Amino acid sequence: MSHLLITGANGFVGQALSCALLDGGHTVTGLLRQRGGALHGVDELVDSSADFADLDTVWPPELRPDCVVHLAARVHVMHDASTDPDAAFRQTNVDGSLRVARAAQRNGVRRFVFVSSVKAMAEIDAGRPLREEDPPAPQDPYGRSKLAAEEALTRYGKETGLEIVIVRPPLVYGPHVRANFLRLMDALWKGMPLPLAAIGARRSLVYVDNLADALVHCATDPRAAYQCFLVADSDAPTVAELARSLGRDLGKPARLLPVPPGWLRAAGLVTGRSAYVDRLIGSLQVDTARIRAELDWRPPFSTEDGLAATARWYRSMH
């Protein structure tokens, strides 16, 4: 069995990954900004400095993990208050990631799994599912920072022999989800009418336990070295299908209105939310053929399973 260090082990994905690794008999250390929040059985290493500036100082010499899974990041936000969002994202997602990789390499770590995002590639697809080899065209500071981090880490891996593995998930959902997915469930729970019935575009997404399972493969399978993988559920529902499925699981039938996409685009222009509307009505599917072929990976849970588990958690909170 392996010893893995997870940055952000107390977060949404970090806890799911920790659980999967512990269940598999692996040893897990969580690298955290402050003590607490990691699962029982996870050793905690604290670096409270900004963007891992003090990591070399706090890393104990006896800590020699086989692999680091880097989850900690400055996350995508719809309305960034920073005066220079690109610089702010770069400080954490590029410079901070490189600090972790360098500390890992200096302490004998063999593999570094970087959890990037499909946003490093695009916001919408070009009429077919995205593939890893497609030319990347990120559209916002978050996506640009993730792509820049991928490129910088890949160069560092070639220079040092550290096995860099890049994972690009789409929207991640599951119990304890936040942001837009949680807002959709809030709206369904309250019975709000939603203008989604006429949106036929499909969106890939990934259940958090499916992502955790894929990350275990990427961290422990020798075949994953130096690879880049898109990871998603087997299904890519339309936004309307997603809302209806969640509504059924919540026991709150979705009230969907057939508003034409053109009207939604016009509303986006008037309200200054065109980017949000474009993401809502645009297709973003990913092709997971590479990880299926290279690592023999299949999502262990269906989208139906993941949505039902997410709805059960939400109902338990209400």
Results as ranks from 00 to 15, higher is better:
F52Q: 12
L32C: 11
A73S: 14
G41F: 08
T92L: 09
D66M: 04
T83I: 11
H70I: 10
D80R: 01
T92A: 15
D43I: 02
D47Q: 05
H76T: 04
D54T: 08
V68D: 02
D43R: 14
V75H: 09
D66L: 04
A72H: 12
A81K: 07
D56G: 15
M78E: 12
R90P: 01
E62D: 12
L31I: 06
F89C: 05
L55R: 06
D43W: 04
D66H: 15
A73D: 04
A72K: 11
P85V: 11
E44Q: 15
R74S: 03
P85K: 06
W59Q: 08
P65M: 00
N93W: 06
L39P: 10
P61H: 11
L31R: 11
S82C: 11
V75P: 02
P85G: 06
D86Q: 12
V94P: 14
A53D: 13
P65E: 01
R64M: 00
R74D: 03
V94Q: 14
G41M: 07
R35A: 15
L55D: 03
V68R: 04
V58N: 12
P61G: 05
A38L: 09
L71Y: 05
T57F: 05
V46S: 07
L31C: 13
H79S: 10
R35I: 03
